[in-house]
């Protein structure tokens, strides 16, 4: 099973290595936000210093790559529901979950690499974080990618329509971004917004990131974020594998 998953992963990575520029475009958006938006946020933190602003803002901009990158990962699979690629793989001796797991693993890897680059830029701008926080943040990005990518494959396989999937993803991405406090912590907002945010898994991801970047590794949002994202990832993974089995109907 691990062999099968790594075979599919290898196939995907070979494609990526032939076309390595696309994921770089994916980090342009968060990097631009870091460069041009973060400096406007000086008054939102206690001291107003750049490192503090970056510790608040960088986790949000990293979640942004997951939302606007990994959530679209399934897009390429929609065509494969029609051109016979998935049909061929479905009746091949392949272990069926590996077909999706291999791709999800690739998307996770891409997201982690993108996250490293974004954190690198933030550090050049003055962000200071410890190694444990850095590594836990990468893990957090990995599980976020796991969730976002399998959700995306699930949508692709269930809806099988480019238009439907892109509309749906756009429809969810914007409110999730705002209600998670991606740009500014929701704690700055009114109570109702804070209550609403508690129903958004992304909120915990962002808050966990902020705790990590503050060096507050014992904060409760960190285990909550991991548990929530891993749980959701498992559910969406099972869902997308089911949809793969029902591809023909």
């Amino acid at each position: 099973m691990i062999r099968q998953t790594s075979l599919f992963l290898g196939y995907e990575l070979r494609f990526l290595l032939r076309n390595p520029v696309w994921p770089l475009f994916g980090i342009m958006q968060p990097v631009l936000y870091l460069l041009f938006f973060a400096p406007l946020l000086g008054r939102t933190t206690a001291s107003g210093s750049m490192p503090e602003v970056l510790a608040m803002f960088t986790p949000g901009s990293m979640m942004m790559i997951a939302l606007f990158g990994s959530l679209f990962a399934g897009f390429g699979m929609i065509n494969e529901t029609r051109n016979g690629v998935l049909e061929r793989l479905a009746v091949s001796p392949a272990w069926p979950p590996a077909i999706i797991l291999g791709r999800v693993a690739k998307d996770m890897l891409v997201l982690v690499i993108q996250a490293i680059l974004v954190m690198g830029v933030a550090m050049l701008m003055g962000l200071r974080i410890g190694l444990p926080a850095f590594l836990i943040m990468l893990l957090l990005m990995a599980v976020t990618g796991l969730f976002a990518a399998s959700l995306s494959y699930g949508l692709a396989l269930a809806i099988k329509d480019e238009n439907g999937v892109s509309q749906l993803v756009q429809f969810f991405a914007m409110p999730l971004t705002l209600i998670a406090g991606l740009f500014l912590p929701v704690s700055l907002g009114p109570d109702w917004l804070q209550t609403l945010a508690r129903f958004n898994p992304l909120y915990y991801g962002v808050e966990a990131g902020r705790s990590l970047f503050r060096g507050d590794l014992g904060d409760s949002t960190i285990p909550i974020a991991f548990a929530l994202l891993i749980g959701l990832a498992l559910i969406t993974m099972v869902w997308s594998m089911r949809s793969l089995r029902r591809l023909a109907s």
Partner: peptide, 29 residues
Amino acid sequence: RENIGYVSQAGGVDENNPGIDQLLLAGRI
């Protein structure tokens, strides 16, 4: 599935990758 080869009407060729990679993957899985 271990005993059949199936060539669908749609073909099932992955447009984004070279044929050799697809043949190798099919063999390895």
